[in-house]
């Protein structure tokens, strides 16, 4: 970025209408998408996946297996996928990078003392540098929610700015962990700060805290993205993560993105799903559309 990021004027934010947002989000759940539209939406959703594994038991073998699936989700049908990225812990970035090779699938790594962020800034930044050095194309950072709730907005801003610097060429996704932010207003403030500080994406959740992504909270963030774009002309991406377990819900998210931000955001450069179990449900729904038969999990690889 040529000009240094400027702390946003938070006075321009109005209060979020909680009931209004939830009602609006509810409407998206009443849509019915059928036939060809459904099939193309399912295929689009596959290409927007950040296929994720963030567990203590992750091993190089599991990551390689996951990468293979991200590159070619449905072995019998090369027209499906590939997914956008695989998302792993820093130590497994090298393995993932090697596995995806030149396939175009990106490697994302969580960093900055994920999922709590409760560590010194020095270590958090060095974690980013380590992941980027190992070949990560994208960094998913967490903000210090404690600080945010304490009102230290400028501290959060500086945190994101420094992480963005540490990323260098890598894209930065900022995880707000909305499940810990208590109100939509705080979510909105956090979104503004993260975007002003240089986030390429804002992301709802780590997946380690309940509730994770929900339609209403994503809507609040999408509207923040919209306003930010109107003011600055910069398109920030959105990544809901955690709790999106089935294809039906994923399609509702796509409809919401389309109707809030427009078609320009319906690409993997601007919208991602962070999910571990969504892939198979999308694949099963695609097979259902193609064959007319309801599918069984028995016929799809587990990882």
């Amino acid at each position: 970025m040529s000009t240094p990021p400027i702390f946003p004027d938070l006075r321009i934010l109005s209060t979020i209408d909680q009931v209004g947002v939830e009602e609006r989000a509810q409407r998206f759940q009443a849509r019915s998408i059928k036939k060809e539209s459904k099939l193309s939406a399912l295929k689009l959703a596959i290409t927007m996946l950040d296929v994720t594994t963030l567990e203590g038991k992750d091993s190089p073998g599991k990551v390689r297996q996951m990468c293979a699936k991200a590159m070619r989700p449905l072995p019998e049908d090369p027209s499906i996928g590939p997914a956008s990225a695989v998302c792993v812990y820093p130590r497994l970035v090298r393995v993932a990078k090697e596995a995806v090779g030149e396939s175009g699938v990106k490697v994302a790594s969580v960093a900055t003392a994920f999922p709590s962020g409760q560590s010194r800034m020095k270590e958090r930044l060095s974690e980013i540098r380590y992941a980027v050095g190992a070949g990560a194309d994208e960094i998913d950072m967490v903000i210090s929610r404690g600080k945010l709730l304490h009102g230290e907005f400028r501290g959060i801003f500086d945190e994101v700015v420094r992480c963005k610097e540490a990323c260098g060429e890598a894209h930065l996704k900022v995880i707000l962990e909305t499940g810990e932010l208590q109100t939509y207003d705080t979510v909105r403030v956090a979104s503004e700060i993260a975007m002003a500080a240089g986030a390429d994406f804002i992301k709802t959740s780590t997946g380690k805290v309940q509730p994770a992504a929900t339609l209403p909270v994503t809507l609040v963030m999408l509207e923040a993205i919209q306003d930010f774009h109107d003011r600055t002309g910069r398109m920030v991406g959105m990544k809901p993560a955690g709790g999106i377990g089935n294809a039906k819900l994923a399609l509702q998210y796509l409809v919401m993105v389309k109707e809030t931000l427009g078609k320009a955001w319906l690409t993997k450069e601007k919208f991602r799903f962070g999910a571990s179990s969504l892939t198979n449900d999308l694949l099963m729904q695609i097979r259902k559309q193609q064959t007319g038969r309801y599918q069984s999990a028995d016929y799809f690889s587990k990882d």
């Binding site: 007319g292 599918q295 028995d298 016929y299």
Partner: peptide, 8 residues
């Protein structure tokens, strides 16, 4: 037909 075709 649906009872008999369901894969699960």
């Amino acid at each position: 037909p649906h009872l008999s075709s369901h894969m699960d």
